[in-house]
Design a protein around this nucleic acid. Structure first.
Length: 652
RNA sequence: GGGACCGUAGCUCAGCUGGAUAGAGCAUCUGCCUUCUAAGCAGAGGGUCGCAGGUUCGAGUCCUGCCGGUCCUACCA
């Protein structure tokens, strides 16, 4: 409703500008800082002052006339130095919300592909991976909330160095047979086991540099899919992927398809892309210098300031002198596939059916399942990858551009975010040893190689444990399994909100105490508001009453009477802005903005809840109105929480 | 050396494409449970928006320089 009026206002003013001044300018609308100024503000007069050579205030007076007839607008005022402030017809606005209104405009066609998670399948997921997944998953839900079709991809680098290192660890460090590893992989917490092994193996390389040859041999075997080392690689990677899927599902995160590097190699995606790149002269063979014998992409493709004269040494190596392709090269091929530009496709088999019936598919080594849906072929692609990889993401986009896929390059978005580090205090708390150098830093970077970090499952367990204690203290009368379920929901809400409250380019210095907080700007705060709203409605039923048929019981006139009270109007207005909040958050690509809206919505409701004992209200019209407001808040809170994938518990 | 990001209250962070009196949470202090659950509400204190210039009706927001911090800049991923 709010966005509808906003659009109508902009359209009316644009038409008026055209008619009166023959100007075609985009109309900017703002939400006034002070609610006393009204619901919408237009600073248009300021922008026109120079062109029309008149004082902004005088222009605003003229423009006001063009807005007076807009349906739903009750008043147009000129304020300040030349603002146009609009006031809505409160009764009509509420009636629009009550009776439902048509959402204007269909969402853009085409499939959006969002790639997120992408954890190397060689160790347990940690807090940094969670930020990626929660950010990606929430963004997906926001897009779907706005009506877009979205496909979620989780790329599995199952043939990389990291998997190889764990295989080396099993084979040479622990001297385990394939059967022994298989037994470990079937046991719980295989990902934890590998976490430690990977850290030990990394340390071993440092002390025994000659061991690097093991890595080379193993990597070669894995890449070529040959022998028992390759089989071991698959065994490890597949088992770890299962662990990751399970961990992520604890937070409600699921995937549509898991493309894998092994199939990208097997199906020779790269050679197809390589032919295209050579043909378009996007890459060339270096004859001399440090990159001699490599196929490289010239720096000017991906760096703004690099001139054509930038040398071979600045170029990005795509194919090594030994003929193997780098990760970026494969990534270019993969990005082409995402847009349906490669002319090749994976085979797929179902990997997992989630409890809600959703199926995640995975790239299959051979024929695959004919029932598989079509994947890839998107019109927009978002890659949720941390900001440290922006250089490589630039190269990928440059690859598309160099091939002439300008439009797809434009629609390739590196949805970047800053890393999650650990606050020194939290390191101490977790018993992580810190060097003197680390202690002086504002935060300590997590490192899988060093085995330094907070594992996702550990953190979730801790949150559940804490929430369980709170629930137990408050609801000792409820069944234990139910209390555990509620505690799990609270933990999920706390964690998802915590990871979302920071904007993407803020480094999170993870602080355990802060993350474990359920008060203030947190997920549980928002959940609590939803629970309270529901309690009012439930209490009503417990008293033998039924919820009124609001559409019949409330009219524009009665709504107008009640909304004459400023506080009621502000509450309703606030509650009605979820669509607006979603729109601006999507435009800026910041899930944090939408999370923040959820918080302000909960704040508004909590104030309302405190100030107006609804069930005790004596005046019938007011009571009906308050009930409607409460149920409207309730539905808005639940809708908002649903998009954030924060569960709404039955009680707290 | 080159590129990118960050610097806002004691702490952690918001501040949408430049707009009206710079916000929130935490922490500190003071009130509020006989009421639809206090995981809550109300209030107080707390600011040279790193520094200096510039652009204009208007700058936390844009430009330049400086100071401080971080990341990237592999024939690793």
């Amino acid at each position: 409703m709010f966005t509808h009026l906003e659009a109508e206002t902009s359209r009316a003013l644009a038409a008026y500008l055209q008619e009166k001044y023959e100007l075609t300018a985009p109309v900017v609308t703002e939400q006034p800082k002070d609610p006393a100024f009204g619901e919408l503000a237009l600073p248009a007069a300021f922008a026109l002052a120079k062109q029309l050579r008149k004082a902004p205030k005088a222009i605003a007076e003229e423009l006001a006339a063009g807005l007076r007839g807009v349906p739903g607008i009750a008043a147009v005022e000129v304020a300040g130095a030349g603002y146009l402030n609009l006031r809505f017809d409160r009764g009509a606005y509420a009636e629009g919300l009550l009776r439902g209104y048509e959402r204007a405009g269909a969402p853009p066609a085409g499939k959006v592909i969002v790639e997120h998670t992408n954890i190397n399948p060689n160790k347990a997921a940690h807090i940094g991976h969670l930020r990626n997944s929660v950010l990606g998953d929430t963004f997906v839900r926001m897009l779907r909330g706005a009506g877009r079709t979205v496909e979620i991809q989780n790329y599995i680098d199952n043939t990389g160095v990291q998997v190889a290192d764990v295989v080396v660890g099993f084979r040479y460090l622990e001297k385990k047979s394939a059967e022994e590893v298989a037994a470990l992989a079937r046991a719980p917490k295989f990902d934890y086991y590998c976490w430690d092994l990977y850290a030990r193996m990394s340390a071993y390389y440092t002390d025994n540099p000659e061991a690097i040859q093991w890595r080379r041999d193993t990597l070669h075997a894995i890449e070529h899919g040959e022998g028992e080392l390759a089989a071991l690689g698959h065994l490890v990677a597949d088992a770890i992927v299962e662990c990751h899927l399970t961990t992520m599902w604890r937070l409600g995160i699921a995937y549509d398809v898991l493309p894998r590097e092994s199939e990208i190699l097997h199906l020779a995606f790269w050679s197809t892309a390589f032919e295209q790149l050579k043909e378009r002269k996007a890459v060339y063979l270096v004859e001399d210098g440090k990159n001699k014998g490599c196929w490289v992409m010239a720096a000017h493709h991906f760096r703004d300031h690099a001139g054509e004269e930038a040398g071979d040494d600045d170029a990005k190596v795509i194919v090594r002198s030994n003929g193997t392709v780098t990760y970026v090269g494969k990534d270019i091929a993969y990005q082409l596939w995402k847009f349906g530009l490669l002319g090749k496709d994976f085979h797929y088999r179902p990997l997992r059916t989630y409890p809600d019936g959703h199926v995640a598919w995975v790239a299959a080594p051979d024929e695959g399942d004919p029932a598989a849906p079509g994947f890839g072929g998107g019109t927009e692609v978002y890659n949720v990858i941390d900001s440290r990889q922006s250089y490589l993401q630039d190269v990928v986009v440059a690859g598309l551009r160099a091939l002439g896929y300008e439009e797809q390059a434009e629609r390739s978005v590196h949805f970047s975010y800053e890393m999650v580090a650990l606050s020194p205090r939290t390191c101490v708390e977790l018993g992580i040893p810190l060097s003197e150098e680390d202690k002086a830093k504002p935060y300590v970077e997590v490192s899988g190689r060093k085995g330094l970090g907070v594992k996702a499952d550990d953190l979730i367990d801790k949150l559940i444990e804490k929430a369980k204690a709170e629930v137990d203290a408050r609801h000792a009368d409820k069944p234990a399994d139910e209390r555990l379920r509620v505690a799990t929901q609270i933990a999920t809400g706390a964690l998802r909100y915590f990871l979302l409250k920071f904007t993407r380019n803020t480094v999170i210095a993870f602080d355990l105490q802060e993350a474990l907080s359920f008060e203030g700007e947190t997920g549980p705060y928002v959940q609590y508001a939803a629970v309270r709203a529901r309690n009012i409605l439930r209490k009503l039923e417990e008293r033998g009453e039924t919820l009124p048929d609001f559409a019949a019981a409330l009219t524009g006139a009665s709504l107008g009477r009640q909304l004459a009270a400023e506080e009621f109007w502000q509450l309703l207005l606030n509650a009605s802005k979820s669509e607006k909040a979603l729109k601006t958050a999507l435009e800026s690509g910041e899930p944090a903005q939408f999370a923040r809206y959820a918080f302000t919505l909960a704040q508004a409701f909590n104030a309302f809840y405190h100030d107006f004992p609804i069930l005790a209200e004596k005046d019938p019209e007011k009571r009906t109105f308050l009930l409607w407001l409460a149920s409207y808040f309730h539905s808005q809170l639940e809708r908002t929480l649903a998009i954030l994938c924060i569960p709404a518990p039955d009680y707290m």
